[in-house]
Amino acid sequence: MPSSESPQVNNFEEIEHTADWAYRVRGENLAQLFIQAALGLYSLVGMELASGSRITQEIQLKGIDGESLLVAWLNELLYLHESEGLGFDRLEIQHLDEKNLQAKVTGAPTQQWLKDIKAVTYHNLAIRKIESGLEVTLVLDV
């Protein structure tokens, strides 16, 4: 699979949830869906990166299917923020199949992060085929 990078257009929207946060994401393929889900997460928390030196990290994850990899991917980004104060605006999915993900992410220390997110959940998580590609709704514990 060719690598997939951050697109110019955002394809996610916040939807109603009584207590937590939920957002719907679309992508033309699985890699784009993962990238849009990450951009949506960063958008919801109002992330802004500090200017200056850039940092690149390699991410490798295993899962049992696309949904578990998606949760692992987003939770990895949350962890990198909370443990190292990092956020990423250039996301490159180098390999993605049903059980493995390999990505290269480039960014910087965050200078703004307005909302604590405890975790990305599996609640009713299902990646669905739609006419334009794939769609998923994610629920975040805030």
Binding site: G63, I64, T121, Y122, H123
Partner: peptide, 19 residues
């Protein structure tokens, strides 16, 4: 929650919601 995704398969547990 991530590790138990494998556990439910290993123990044959049927779930109404993966969370």
């Amino acid at each position: 929650v991530q590790d138990f995704q494998w556990a439910v398969i290993n123990y044959g547990i049927k779930l109404p919601d993966r969370e």
